[in-house]
Amino acid sequence: MAIVEHNLPRSAGRPWSGVLLTVAGRLAQMALTLLTASFLIFVALQLAPGNPVDIMLGAKAGDPEAVRRLNAQYHFDQPLLVQYGHWLTGLLHGDLGTSFVFRESVSSLIAARVPTSALLVAYGGVLVLVLGFAVGLVASRAGRTVDTGISVLLSVALATPTYVIAIVLITVFSLYLDWFPVFGSGDGLLGRLHHLTLPAVTLALSSSAAMARVTRAAVKDEEGRDHVTTAVARGLDRRTVLGRHVVRNALLPITTIAGIIGAGLIAGTVIVENAFGLDGVGSLLVQAITRKDYAVVQSTSVLIIAAFLLVNAFVDVLYGIIDPRTRTGGTR
């Protein structure tokens, strides 16, 4: 497509230094965000009611000797900042501590559950992109009746809470039709995908509706622009006008919503994994929270935030590719 690769005004001088600087700044920013977030989570956990030592001891909760021993073992007797320092140095050495519920190292606990969650989010993301974009595009091209019909369906999909969607899907597709399993994660990639289909649909449904709406609005908006009239006036065929000018430019608002949706999908795994009994990071987080498993909650939350940040960074990079006007290190 690019016909000429001559030197551009924006890349005059040392072309890569600007890009590297941007990336370095970006990474530093992400590290700082993670640090702040992890500290806030740490403090919030300490402030929350309930005491992990009591839960661990169960019936022996009153025994002062046992309480003292456990407090020393998990550093609960030390000041908050020191405890946080322990966690942080451990993190830098790849040691996230030990779960006192599962009696297992937190890193291996999380590592075992990441694939399920990652696959679930990826599956859901693909569904949102394909389904949401396709429906939105169809609605933008369709006549009044079809457009209104789609719009009503989208409103319903948007307004239905995730757990209701989960119940309906399980009832229809698992209990009546018996097409998909209700429970568990499955084996092998195909088995996993089969098991993950209903959860992914549940996760993606309302996001797809949001995506479809934004796509429809963005395409309609872009169609009315002057540069599209120019493209028609220049004798480009309908397909080229639609692809190269209308949809191409509509990708900007679509990318914005995709970033928000990506973050929402990650957060949504917490509910969906529980509803479908999947052993992912989200269900691990819920289990850990109910049992005051500090080490697990802390690391899992930070991991989820890191995933958030990565999605955001990815969207920013996409932005630069899609709209030359937003490229940094730019015109002057």
Binding site: I3, R234, H245, I322, D323
Partner: peptide, 22 residues
């Protein structure tokens, strides 16, 4: 055809070379 406002009438996401030879 030549339009009134060139900044609005030319798609901002493509390079001038691509626009001319489109």
């Amino acid at each position: 055809m030549v339009f009134q406002d060139p900044h609005a009438a030319i798609n901002p996401v493509h390079r001038i070379g691509d626009y001319l030879t489109e």
